[in-house]
Each structure stands twice: as structure tokens, then as C-alpha cells.
Design a protein around this nucleic acid. Structure first.
Lengths: 191, 191
DNA sequence: GGCAGACGATAACATTTGTTATCAAATGCA
DNA sequence: TGCATTTGATAACAAATGTTATCGTCTGCC
């Protein structure tokens, strides 16, 4: 699982093994809630197999706003970093195989690792990249129609369209399930 | 202008003065374009007086997506950091007094300053905070009606409502100017 | 002072999107 | 296998929002 990341980290084997031993492997069924609204996040997850959605309750309707797949790490970032009650629920969509690490271990690793200039730069790059991704996603809400957002999604993240139930995608795109059906139907009709 | 920031930086006066001497003061009229779409951003601005909007052209309509006021720093972040052609235009709304610094100076300062643990943590915090702000703004597009977004804006950033022409606010909220007028009119009527 | 352009309100109409209800197909599970 | 649940399509209607056009006011500027 971790081998694929090994060469990005200029650490000796002892440190490296020490770090990856902090992770624990679990297997969970679909619809497992990994973090509930209002909880304070203590775990960071990495997905070996499966997928996860992050959503929140908006006046009784659930609104999905992120999807994660294999090899991605997942947490309610704001809650994990700042110890705020999580505004979101983290939940598996498919039966999944996950690795998790406790926040106190993660903090310790980060504190050590950030002294290494190269890793620090990687870390800062990741933070920038995350902001850019949000900006981009946000842009598309301002400028694109729901139909265009759906087309973008198929183009840019086909995994989501293929693996995720459609009603989750609808709320991710900011439309009702009925309307997403209409959008798909119109697209097929035009061909 | 820079005194207000002085105590946050554990630097000796020589370094500090050296850094702030990299900034240059300019006065510009309203509707001055500081960075155009497609340009690569070389300057970071700090606003002493005035306000700035960041917008982009979407099929002939301009869409505003950020406002900045006194004491805030402004750049097309993605362009400034990654040297990409800017997707956005940076433009003054009011006649403004600005301080700017060239990217090559900023990079040098950052490289020096990031070795200081305390400043590095501040820097990382700013990056996190920026991401959280985007998430929050984005959330409100998914979950709130345009009316609610307008109410939030009045509550959270009254400066914008007070100082910025309404048609810019409309595109910032993701509605047409006509609809924003309707929203305001309904709110007044209900009182 | 007067003029051009920017700004904002409003009306009428068009289009998009949401809501509710119903049905069919697929899926999971006992 | 068979039943309950989930998922998705569609229709009919309601509500929200966009578009175009018109008008009045304000503002900066010569």
C-alpha cells in the first residue's frame, strides 16, 4: 500500500517504517460512517480500495460535496486540523479497505518531517493545490450551467459518474435528482 | 502602512526594513486594470486605501468572484505562485492607494522567512485559512438560496454591500442584476 | 450647467429548475 | 428464490431565475 509513496520521501528506512507502522488497516461495509457531523476528527484515512463521500445535512436534505477514491486521503480537514466540530459527515459509498492514522501520530510526524525542506515544499504545494482545486470547482458553479457542470464532471472525473449513485452526483452538482435525470435524457436525445 | 504588521514578525530591524523597502507605493484611479486575463502575475498588491475586484470574462459577461479592501493583499494567486497565465482580471473599483512588490523579491523574502519556524507556521495557517474560506463560500452556493446569500453577505461583509456597485455584487452572488433588484425589493417589502 | 455614461428599479415574458407523485428496473439480502 | 430497498426515469405542475426593454436618477467631467 505505501510502497508507491516511498520514493517521494527522503527518509531512512527506520523513520519510514516507524511512520507507516502508525497506520492501521480496516475493512468496512458500504454506508459506514467514519466521522459524524459535530464530532471532532481524530483520524485521517487513506483509501486502499473503495470510495467515500463527504456530505452535510441541509434542512433535512443531504448535500454531497466531495468524493474520494483509491489512494486519496480523507478527513474533515477543518475539524482534523483545527479541532472544530466537523460540519460534515464522512461516509463510505462502497465496501472499502482503509488505512487510518491517529491525529496525535500525524501531528508528530508532520512536526518532524516539516523540518526537511524538500518535504516542507511538497506540503505547501499540496496546500496550494487544494486551494486551487476548490477555486476551480467554485468557478464552475458561478459560470457553468448544470448541464455544463455534468459534462465537465464526465470529462474530468469519469470515476465519479461511473461509480457513484446518481442522486449523490445530483447534490454534488447542485441540482435535484429529477433535474439531473432530465439533463442526462436531453444529452442522450441530442446525440 | 507596515507598522501594524511589525510585531508579528520576529525579525531584526535591518531585515525588516530591507523587506519593506521592496514595496513601492502607487496611486491609481478607479477602474485601473492591475492584471489582465492571460498575463502572468508579477506583482503582489497591498491595499492602503480603496477597493479591488477580481473578475473574469464568461462568454462576454463579466463575473466578479472576489472583493478586496484596505490592508488586504491581492494577486491572482495561481498565476503569481505557479506562473500560469492569469484566468482573472484584477481591477480597482475606487481610486486606490496601493503598495506592490515584485515576485522575485517576494520569493526571496519567503525563502528566507520560511526558515523561521514561527513564520512558517503562520504562513501555513494562512494557506489553510484561505482554503477554509473558499470552502465556506462554496458551501453557501450549494446550500443557500440567492436571497440567503445576500443576507449572509450583508451580515458578514457589510463593506461589500456598502461600497461596491450592485451589478458587481449580483455576479458575485451568482444572480442577474435584475434578480438582485427583486431580492432587495422583496426584503424591503417584508419589513 | 449640461451632457454622456453608469447605475438601479421595474414590468413582461421566456426559460430553467424544483417538487410531488408514480412507476420500472436493479440490487442486496434473508 | 423472493421481498424490501435503492436507484433512476418521467410527467405535471409550481416556483425561481434569466432576458430584454424601458425609464428615472445619479455622477463625473468638460
Amino acid at each position: 500500500m505505501f510502497d508507491q509513496f516511498r520514493d517521494r520521501f527522503p527518509l531512512d528506512d527506520q523513520h519510514w517504517n516507524n511512520y507507516i507502522n502508525c497506520f492501521e488497516r480496516i475493512e468496512v461495509p458500504a454506508k459506514t460512517i467514519l466521522l459524524n457531523e459535530g464530532e471532532i476528527s481524530k483520524k485521517l484515512f487513506i483509501i486502499e480500495k473503495g470510495c467515500i463521500r463527504v456530505w452535510f445535512n441541509n434542512n433535512g436534505k443531504d448535500v454531497t460535496f466531495q468524493f474520494f477514491f483509491e489512494n486519496q486521503s480523507v478527513a474533515s480537514l477543518e475539524s482534523f486540523v483545527k479541532k472544530f466540530p466537523s460540519p460534515v459527515v464522512v461516509e463510505t459509498i462502497e465496501p472499502s479497505v482503509l488505512w487510518w492514522i491517529h491525529k496525535k501520530d500525524m501531528d508528530r510526524i508532520l512536526a518532524e518531517v516539516i523540518e526537511i525542506a524538500q518535504l516542507r515544499d511538497q506540503f505547501i504545494n499540496v496546500l496550494f493545490q487544494r486551494t486551487f482545486d476548490y477555486m476551480k470547482h467554485f468557478f464552475s458553479f458561478i459560470k457553468d450551467s448544470p448541464t455544463q457542470r455534468y459534462l465537465n464532471l464526465m470529462e474530468e472525473k469519469p470515476q465519479i459518474v461511473q461509480r457513484v449513485p446518481q442522486h449523490y452526483i445530483a447534490s454534488y452538482l447542485g441540482v435535484s435528482t429529477v433535474h439531473l435525470s432530465r439533463i442526462k435524457s436531453k444529452l442522450v436525445h441530442k446525440k
